[in-house]
């Protein structure tokens, strides 16, 4: 099986001098559901943002689908980005726009800049957006402003937005960290479904081991910017858990 994403010797040093990533080597196969574990500040968010260049890396290599992401510029970078959907902890929707418009913004990578100046919508795009909204069960909310939606609903809108990109990879940065346990599970279920049915590769950072065991096909753990564990979710025992989260940590069951 070939790799969709290859990361080699990735370093990130922030302007303030923080060494967030210290030589990450990671290969992601097509169709994997990869869970990133680690304490806050261990470099999970930085790693995810380096993959689609929301953050510029300091050194290293990132190969997505055979193309070197770090050498891409302008239009080519946009072509890479539009194949990679992203989901955020804070949903990052535009709160005072309608749900449908929010989902449609997922298509921006495919639309000419000049064309989008007119705010005109392609009919096929609207149809696709409605289909994706239906898929996450929110079609009836399509004209509602997203600020009026609950947290779980907003995250589902964000998933629909990512789906508009027809992504090959979805990066999820703690997608359920600000949701209650039940809603968290339902959001993860949607991600799992995309992974199984649409064969979209998912790289998802999480805090809950139970969710990682339930949905992940592979777990990678970061600690202080380095990979300290790479294996199956079932392989994480108590000792491994303490290696990742520190000696003091106790596993908290969320159900």
């Amino acid at each position: 099986m070939s790799y969709l994403l290859e990361i080699r010797e990735l370093h990130k040093i922030y302007e303030g001098g923080t060494h967030a990533l210290k030589g990450i080597d990671l290969n992601v196969r097509k169709g994997e559901f990869l869970i990133l574990l680690g304490l806050s500040g261990s470099g999970k968010s930085t790693l995810l943002r380096c993959i689609n260049r929301l953050i510029e890396t300091s050194s290293g290599e990132i190969i997505f689908d055979g193309k070197n992401v770090l050498q891409m510029k302008g239009r080519n970078l946009r072509y890479i980005r539009r194949q990679i959907g992203m989901i955020f902890q804070q949903f990052n929707l535009i709160k005072n726009l309608s749900t449908l418009t929010n989902v449609l913004t997922g298509k921006l990578g495919y639309v000419n800049t000049i064309h989008s100046l007119g705010f005109r919508r392609c009919r096929s795009d609207v149809a696709a957006a409605e289909k994706n909204l239906e898929r996450v069960g929110l079609l009836e909310f399509r004209m509602k402003k997203t600020r009026n939606l609950s947290g779980g609903q907003q995250q589902r809108v964000a998933i629909a937005r990512a789906l508009m990109q027809n992504p090959r990879l979805i990066l999820a940065d703690e997608p359920v960290a600000s949701l209650d346990p039940a809603t968290a599970d339902s959001v993860m279920r949607y991600l799992g479904e995309l992974n199984k049915k649409d064969n979209i590769t998912v790289v998802c950072s999480l805090h809950f081991l139970s969710l990682a065991r339930k949905y992940g096909s592979r777990v990678v753990a970061l600690k202080d910017g380095e990979i300290v564990f790479d294996g199956l979710p079932s392989e994480i025992n108590e000792q491994k858990f303490k290696d990742i989260y520190g000696e003091e940590a106790e596993e908290v069951e969320i159900r």
Binding site: R78, I80, R81, N92, L108, S116
Partner: peptide, 27 residues
Amino acid sequence: IDHGPVEAIKATGASTIQTWIFAVIPQ
């Protein structure tokens, strides 16, 4: 403004102008 939506729109592969129009102006 909230930087989150800007990041999100950028991540969809939108150009700088598109990011301004869809993530900055509505806010």
